[in-house]
Amino acid sequence: MFDLFGLDYFVDGSKRIFWLYLVSALMIALLFFWKQRAILKMQFSKEVLWHPSARLDYLYFGVMGIVKTLLLLPLLVGVNEVALWMVMAIQEVFGYVERIRVDRIWLITGYTTMLFVFNDLTRYWLHRWMHTSSLLWRFHRVHHSAEVLNPMTFYRVHPIENLLFGFRYALTTGAITALFIYFFGAGIGVVEIFGANMIVFIFMLIGANLRHSHIPLHYPKRIEKWLISPYQHQLHHTTRYSRYNYGSTLAVWDWWFGSLLYSKDLTYIDEPLRFGLLDEQPTHSLVGAFFNPFYKGIKL
């Protein structure tokens, strides 16, 4: 039951809302905005935390726990199956190669890094595709219909999008794993902290949960070229700049593929960011969120 409603997410280091990541986000917010009490007060105000949009986030999270367990898991392509199929296929097509012998520390570091980088890259492109394809946008707008942001908004994702991202993960991780096995053999492994890829863990710890919040934490411009700051992601959630900053962790994909927007570029904005959808006022209904994407023109 604990798992069914997603409550295990709070104690699982591979999840965005792992308690440690929430605590670290809170502390970073306090650290940088202690003197700007209005910002902190707003984030923890009833208007934000008990907004109809936020209430849908909480409800959605609980219901999606059941949907994921009972409906999505059986449909997902397993990363193990993909990796196995790929390594056998690569070997049959390209033949045998003598295994490259490298020190285990480099092998594990390389594998951990490649998993992170290529997963981040494919997340960028699928996310961008969710915006540019009118069909996929129908499903992704469920996430963008949030008018206030809180860490649970991360899970406000339509099941179809869940399936697509699950498929993306299986393909990316399966391909990287297959290539590493093909070239390096059995010594590979992931450096994990609390069950999360070490690099992912670090990024989660340095305020990933502030991405879905009203805390405008941004980095210096030279860093925002490489790493997406929470504020850059908040800009992505605005009605005006949703075609920018598709990146999850690394900003280089946005930079290289022309969709990067720096926080500093918008310093003239002195009014609060407006989140949500431009073309309609969402109803924030659970049933609508699940079913309306299948019917064009119906409010979420």
Binding site: K15, G78, M88, H127, F165, I188, G189, Y246
Partner: peptide, 24 residues
Amino acid sequence: QSLYYDSLIQSLNLTAEIIEADGD
């Protein structure tokens, strides 16, 4: 051969993030 690879892949514990879909 595929069983040997399967044993190797299983040991990597790659399933953890499978439905941590990305609501970004």
